[in-house]
């Protein structure tokens, strides 16, 4: 049998990868033996002995590390789900404004997309936390009477209280991601043949009705893959919560690693959490995608 040049290259590359992984595992095991702490997850059930500002379920410092991590996981999930919804609403609105007939809305949305996309997310989060909320000091803004009040304690809307940390993370992630979603929406709508617009307009339909009965159903197959990757980015970007002091899974993990001195176990938990979360998001989107494409082709 003749071995081709390509196969030799591939074999060498595989060998290189195997060596690299072996070296890494060797390093870890040498270091673990040297520090003498070994590899174990028993610490998970010891008391965390730190307080959490926000916890969706009852929590006290005497609860275990595992329970604290679970609170962090729920906090992450909460901010991701709300940001995902808000980012989608803002993004679709901006994306439609960008291609609409209203000159002012078009210019404003183009400016919004430019500014948001050209500045770092970390900076935007800092802006929301320190400039938008903490700088209010003693001031309480009540733009629509007692229904909504905004202060350095966060937002109170119809009796629902959101902390300043949660609010700034929610707004920061939503606004940042919405600019990208807007571009995905615009691209998808532009991918639909112009003849479809002329066709429904000729039938006397207004642009709004035509948009949701004719254009958006045809744009969705082009929008969904881009939307999925923006959702995944949002989930990963939520780890910047640590910058505004929101107790998400990453922030809590960080504290735990400091206390226990177990970075390897900590990072394994973190990696698996995000892997699980993002697989959940992308599979969910895949199901939606399949539903849409199969209903179209019947």
């Amino acid at each position: 049998m003749k071995i081709s040049y390509k196969e030799i290259i591939q074999a060498l590359f595989a060998l290189f990868l195997i060596i690299l992984i072996c070296v890494l595992i060797n390093n870890i095991s040498i270091n673990l033996t040297r520090t003498g702490i070994g590899f174990s997850f028993n610490w998970l059930f010891r008391p965390a002995s730190f307080a959490l500002a926000e916890h969706p379920l009852p929590y006290s410092p005497s609860d275990s590390y595992a329970w604290a991590l679970f609170m962090g996981w729920l906090n992450s999930l909460k901010v991701i789900i709300y940001s995902l919804l808000l980012a989608t609403v803002i993004g679709v609105f901006i994306g439609l404004s960008r291609i609409g007939k209203n000159e002012l809305l078009r210019v404003v949305s183009a400016g919004y997309i430019t500014i948001i996309r050209q500045t770092p997310l970390l900076l935007q989060l800092m802006f929301w936390y320190f400039v938008a909320f903490l700088s209010l000091k003693e001031t309480v803004l009540k733009p629509i009477g007692n229904l909504l009040s905004i202060s350095n304690q966060g937002i109170n809307f119809l009796g629902i209280t959101l902390s300043a940390e949660f609010s700034s993370l929610l707004l920061g992630l939503s606004v940042f991601t919405s600019a990208y979603i807007a571009e995905v929406v615009r691209g998808g709508i532009n991918s639909v043949d112009k003849g479809q617009w002329e066709s429904f307009r000729s039938l006397g339909l207004n642009d709004f009705t035509g948009l949701y009965t004719i254009i958006i159903p045809q744009a969705l197959p082009a929008i969904l893959p881009g939307l999925t990757s923006q959702y995944l980015n949002l989930a990963k970007n939520s780890t910047l919560a640590i910058a505004v002091g929101y107790s998400d899974i990453y922030a809590i993990n960080d504290t735990i690693i400091n206390q226990t001195g177990r970075p390897i176990e900590g990072f394994i938990i973190l990696l698996l959490s995000f892997l699980f979360l993002n697989l959940f998001i992308s599979n969910g989107m895949e199901i939606i995608n399949t539903m849409i494409t199969s209903s179209k082709n019947n």
């Binding site: 043949d193 003849g195 479809q196 002329e198 066709s199 429904f200 307009r201 000729s202 039938l203 006397g204 339909l205 009705t209 009965t213 004719i214 159903p217 045809q218 179209k296």
Partner: peptide, 29 residues
């Protein structure tokens, strides 16, 4: 447009709707 019909070179039917839905769309909406 409600009183003038138009037929295009490229047909411009709505590909995601059935033939019947293509025709009933404007009368219904």
């Amino acid at each position: 447009r409600k009183r003038v019909g138009m037929v295009f070179q490229q047909f411009n039917l709505f590909p995601h709707l059935s033939i019947l839905e293509n025709i009933t769309l404007a009368p219904i909406k």
